[in-house]
Design a protein around this nucleic acid. Structure first.
Lengths: 229, 229
DNA sequence: TTGCTATTCCAAACAAACATGGAATAGAGT
DNA sequence: ACTCTATTCCATGTTTGTTTGGAATAGCAA
């Protein structure tokens, strides 16, 4: 086999990772898996895919080494293969949003679209460092608005879990006089935006954490697992 | 437009970057562009592509925001859009090689294949930090074996440029009693491996720098441009 | 064993990406 | 104006990915 042929083969192998990340549905699956492990059925439902389709996409991700599987009885749970994969996904997202005007617009449409874009909201976002400092004083309530199972799979130490769907009816669980910092999956997740809006509508002091759990993990900050409040 | 639709659109936009990286030929182009700007024809020749094909691939990279163009008369020069893109490429490569056994094998085949794989050669590779320390003392000669134009587009300060093709006939330009540290494009570039082998065959003290110019740039270490020795 | 469930495999229809050669474009030189 | 060159655009055939529904598999529970 010639040198040229070997080079071609190398780049084709590297391209398999690119291909795996070159499909919107697969990126959505990666985004979900970054929050914790999931069964095939769960992923299919949440991503709006047929079972066979979801399975096929997961095979592609697996062939590219991006996800691992764990068998539990008759179920198969998929997980991201590691933090490096989450980092790759984050960097891809950053490059896309920074370098492609259309991607930036699509993100803004998704995050703020349909609602009023509040210009000062962005400056009010709290950085991870600030959150750590304030949470240490007990000066803020940290609110996780992701689904309960994602909270269980890993959350910011001391955070309270109230999934966005149930936030309205469980408002009284939040101290009324304290500022609330809401967070969700990551930079491209709507949940915390909507939570902050809902809290403001009810006269609460609320801000959004910059980014979310994905970036928190990548920053290697402490993570608590389990259902406890 | 519904929320679901907007989400789909966002992930489809992000996937365009993945798609752009999902083709071996395009990755090869990115690899070349990481060394400096290039005309279409040059890229086509070096990557072994037809002109139309190369142009089409470059369009895809451009649409994804990964490369920029500069017009100079009738020529068009392509460049990587930024260090973030180089970083994305590096991370993709690392994930591929770390997570896919086939990719790791393909890399090793390309780097060492056809020649004897020397097991201790890897430990003899010099880290960037060590190189900086040794070069400051003048204890080693730093040798850039990439093509001259890549050297001109950016090299390690103090490095000597002898393209691999001309190394044999220009051996006498290297001080015979000093250790030589050879480097090339990056972790997946053969040039420095072959250079070290050739130098050893001529009884020289030679080692390879870990990785190459791509990773040097990403580490934000000093870079010199221009043709001067 | 039989039934039940979650997942994967398979085949077929459909859609998207790729390579190629020739035409069109745009800039520079004459 | 014409010519030359570098690049892009276009139409083509070919290959590769995607979705779908149904069949096959593997594990659990009677």
């Amino acid at each position: 086999m010639g040198d040229r042929q070997r080079k071609k083969e190398l780049f084709n192998q590297l391209a398999r990772v690119g291909k795996a990340l070159g499909n919107g549905k697969r990126l959505e699956l990666v985004d979900l898996l970054a929050q914790g492990e999931r069964s095939v059925e769960h992923l299919a439902v949440v991503a709006g895919l047929g079972l066979s389709t979801a399975s096929a996409h997961l095979q592609v991700l697996k062939q590219a080494g991006l996800v691992n599987t764990r068998k539990d009885g008759t179920r198969i749970f998929y997980t991201l293969a590691g933090l490096d994969v989450a980092g790759l996904y984050e960097q891809l997202r950053n490059v896309a949003v920074d370098r492609m005007a259309e991607a930036e617009r699509a993100r803004d449409d998704y995050l703020h679209g349909g609602r009023a874009p509040v210009p000062e909201a962005q400056e009010q976002e709290l950085s991870r460092e600030d959150l750590l400092a304030r949470a240490a004083d007990g000066a803020v309530t940290v609110l996780d608005v992701r689904p309960a199972e994602e909270f269980a799979a890993g959350h910011i130490p001391g955070a309270v879990s109230i999934p966005l769907e149930k936030l309205q009816q469980r408002l009284d669980e939040l101290p009324p006089d304290q500022q609330v910092v809401a967070y969700c999956r990551g930079a491209c997740c709507v949940l915390a935006y909507e939570a902050v809006e809902l809290l403001h509508a009810h006269g609460r002091q609320a801000r959004r954490l910059q980014d979310g759990m994905l970036e928190w993990r990548l920053a290697e900050l402490p993570v608590t697992t389990g259902h406890a409040a």
